[in-house]
Design a protein around this nucleic acid. Structure first.
Length: 206
DNA sequence: TAGGCCATCTGGTCCT
DNA sequence: AGGACCAGATGGCCTA
């Protein structure tokens, strides 16, 4: 049974069947001479004794045998074609999965990079808010508020690594003033330029 | 040698 | 009707 499909030329759908026992059992019905197909020996001499009805019956039988053979071959062809399609489908699927695997490191890096940028923005935002609040209560002490809160969150590493981010301009800016809003971009840029690269490197190594 | 992995075959089902 | 998709079955190969 399993050796039936081994000689398939999958590229051309030109199937060459390997002969098997199973097929033999079919071919004894389908491919043998029609006269001998139904257990009756081919005997032209008997034809004189055949009635018209017998001949009609024989013709019908022959026709059916031929149809069965055709149907059998057609079914087999369809199956082989389906096998071929399935094989190609699985190959395509595997190729696609391989491609996906090959770009996975890039995707992971992109994900971490985006996350790092988001964190940078979030931390900068937090700091600005803090310094704004502190300067309202104790004007002139906003620099204290800029100190990273140790172990406050997952970004403590970033905070500690970026302690130099409290640049003079950042400390002395008055968050309450309209200029503070303009400073935001500067703060972010400073933050980004000094530490984001380290973050990216760090997360790329995860 | 058992078990895992992979490729292929196969019949059923759904969709066009 | 024929193709796509799916899940189960099967057999070959490799490894601990």
């Amino acid at each position: 049974m399993e050796s039936v499909y081994l000689d398939i030329d999958s590229s051309s759908c030109d199937y060459s069947f390997t002969h098997t026992d199973d097929e033999d059992s079919h071919s004894s019905i389908h491919a043998a001479s029609p006269a001998s197909s139904f257990g009756k020996p081919a005997s032209p001499a008997n034809s004189l004794q055949d009635t018209a009805a017998d001949l009609q019956q024989k013709k019908k039988r022959r026709g059916r045998a031929r149809n069965e053979a055709t149907v059998h071959v057609m079914k087999k062809n369809r199956r082989l074609k389906a096998n071929d399609r399935e094989r190609n489908r699985m190959h395509n699927l595997n190729d696609a999965l391989d491609t996906l695997r090959s770009v996975l490191p890039t995707l992971r890096f992109a994900h971490n990079y985006i996350w790092a940028l988001s964190e940078t923005i979030r931390i900068a935002d937090q700091r600005q808010k803090k310094s704004r609040d502190t300067s309202k209560v104790l004007p002139g002490l906003s620099c204290i508020a800029d100190a990273p809160s140790p172990g406050s969150d997952a970004c403590s590493w970033v905070s500690s690594a970026s302690s130099s981010a409290s640049s003079p301009s950042y400390c002395t800016s008055n968050p309450g003033s309209p200029a503070a809003m303009d400073d935001y971009g500067f703060i972010f840029l400073g933050y980004y330029s000094t530490h984001c690269f380290h973050m990216i490197l760090y997360f790329y190594c995860i």
